[in-house]
């Protein structure tokens, strides 16, 4: 996994969750980050769609529940 994509995923999450980037690690998931709730998850996906001019389909959305998932998806855009 490219480090820039991990950094970008963490940056996206920290801006949505309104928390410092260094409080999120590449191993974090929806189970480990308390503020990563259903509403923030929607905001995260809409942010990705806006930044990358992409439309996230349901199958993709169901694979975006970890920092690494997000980084991997970003790397395909």
């Amino acid at each position: 996994m490219d480090s820039p994509n991990i950094e970008k995923a963490i940056s996206l999450l920290s801006s949505i969750l309104d928390c410092p980037a260094d409080s999120i690690s590449e191993n974090d998931t929806i189970e480990t980050v308390e503020k990563w709730d259903s509403l923030n998850h929607m905001r995260l996906i809409l942010k990705i769609e806006e930044e990358y001019k992409a439309e996230v389909d349901p199958d993709t959305a169901l694979g975006l529940f970890t920092v690494k998932d997000i980084a991997a998806y970003i790397s395909t855009l």
């Binding site: 929806i30 189970e31 709730d37 259903s38 509403l39 998850h41 929607m42 996906i45 809409l46 389909d57 349901p58 959305a61 169901l62 529940f65």
Partner: peptide
């Protein structure tokens, strides 16, 4: 529904 991201999140969780 596919764009209902909060519900996709909740069912997965």
């Amino acid at each position: 529904r596919g764009r209902n991201f909060p519900a996709l999140f909740n069912y997965t969780k």
